[in-house]
Design a protein around this nucleic acid. Structure first.
Lengths: 286, 286
DNA sequence: GCGAATTGGAATTTTTTATTCCAATTCTCT
DNA sequence: AGAGAATTGGAATAAAAAATTCCAATTCGC
């Protein structure tokens, strides 16, 4: 039983000094934990020895043991995050609630994104990526960052990657694609004009088109040869591409890991990349 | 806040006595909480004053404050939810195992990143961001994508943001900063030369420097006025900036949400942004 | 190599915790 | 109602714990 609850239940039958000390602890456990027995005595207008005796009457060797018990009682009040809170972040939510809702939303988006894509589709995309002569990545806004992140990872593996943040350059690149090439197009809405036009052109040129897009029917999904779906709930986190981005990253990270697994010399490539970058790191100063 | 993670991250750079004391605390926090400084000294074969000094080196007034921090850290240890695995992705892992390990690693990185930053530090960073005249974002490699993502979000709120992927331009921008400005620097290692030099310059120019960096002692953390820590385990996911990036995003997303909460017209700004972008979306065809 | 800085234990001081002493109050029994 | 026993609780005291000082040894930086 929590010592805080135990004290609370006994308050009414306690003698005056004990009641005052107990009340303080129940009301302000955080503060109590920071106080010496003498300081708590001052706060309650009682004596230091009363504080120690209070502890002993509760069955503890002394004040330090009571403190430990209060600390443990408080620990049980900390909301368990395993369950996560799913909910819309509201204007008057406190810090802890926001944290939990944000983390819960991220986790839910990633989990649901995994759920809506079956292994066969992932395998198909993987096969296409593995076999592609050149991989062109397309996306705008937040999706452009995911595209760029994935392009970095593919380049680390020595793959022939085309990526540019300028959609005109993306379009020009797409015009050079052929049947041995692949377009990896990211757009949560599936309706971004630039990404859509690039996908249409790549499709016309017989390149394989992989679309990473939301579950709803959309123009990009219709153009694609392979569809990977993402689930995000933007309404809950201020509609600023947080969960949609996380869902896309979940897929690109997974594809990257699977590609690494399938490419025998992947380790060497990744290691070489790190070694190369290390010259741009400050030397250990001590 | 998790002092246990902090100690753990710093063990290798500690002197002998500190390492032994720190190791004991990390290995046996429950037991430590029951020991006096003298008893812990006996357990570790070190002196009682070393125990107190260890506490003070970590930033606490003394051993009692360290104890309190350890107690709070223990309260925030989060177990892995069902369906996820904490473990290293191996060469012969099957699809489902990879999925579970990837998701588990991502969740752990995000949870631990939340644990190692206390609300007071987040609040301090938030205050600085809110009050800054101009916000300059710096980062290279994977951190540059997080910096850009956060810059997009801040710009959506109408904030005065400086971000360029070219580190020379970043440096030039930093040379225009002043006491009313803020540098938000991201580097997991804290040792990327470009980011470090930019931070040093911003600091010289009296701008506020917020560092988002790993837990280990590093040059960037030393330059910063405000430190936000990230925890990632790159060994488990092929050392390609997956969990470190997710950890950084967790923090920037949280800061963004908190800024939105605190800016009365944030909704209008975000809504206006969506409306503006909508002209670049394909019309619904049927 | 030399001086400065750091490390870390022993000794000492200060603070905190726990116990003892004892007066006042309350409770129980006749 | 009164006397004795039990309880309450603060002041004083003793013991334990925490923190600081002193200083020798080692490491670091020039």
């Amino acid at each position: 039983m929590s010592i805080l609850k135990k004290i609370s239940a006994q308050l009414e039958t306690m003698a005056p000094a004990d009641r005052q000390i107990g009340q303080f602890i129940v009301d302000k456990p955080d503060q109590m934990l920071r106080l010496s027995s003498a300081a708590l005595a001052v706060e309650t207008g009682r004596s230091q020895s009363s504080v120690v005796k209070f502890s002993q009457k509760l069955g503890y060797a002394g004040y330090q043991e009571l403190k430990l018990a209060v600390s443990e009682a408080k620990a049980q009040e900390w909301p368990a995050p395993a369950g996560m809170i799913h909910g819309t972040i509201e204007v008057d939510d406190g810090y802890l609630t926001i944290l939990q809702k944000l983390l819960g939303s991220k986790l839910q988006a990633m989990q649901q994104t995994i759920s809506v894509n079956n292994e066969a589709d992932i395998e198909k995309a993987l096969e296409a990526l593995h076999d592609a002569r050149r991989i062109h990545l397309a996306g705008v806004g937040a999706s452009s960052l995911v595209a760029r992140d994935f392009s970095y990872k593919l380049m680390k593996l020595g793959r022939n990657v085309l990526h540019d943040s300028d959609s005109h350059v993306q379009m020009a690149n797409a015009s050079t694609l052929g049947p041995d090439d692949l377009l990896f197009a990211l757009s949560y809405s599936g309706a971004s004009i630039e990404t859509l036009r690039i996908a249409e052109l790549a499709s016309q040129r017989k390149a394989t088109v992989i679309a990473v897009t939301g579950l709803q029917d959309n123009p990009l999904a219709r153009v694609a040869d392979i569809r990977l779906h993402t689930v995000g709930d933007e309404d809950r986190v201020r509609s600023s591409s947080i969960t949609a981005r996380d869902a896309q990253l979940m897929l690109t990270d997974l594809l990257f890991i699977l590609l690494v697994q399938r490419q025998p010399d992947a380790h060497d490539y990744v290691h070489n990349s790190e070694t190369a970058v290390s010259v741009l790191k400050a030397k250990r100063l001590s």
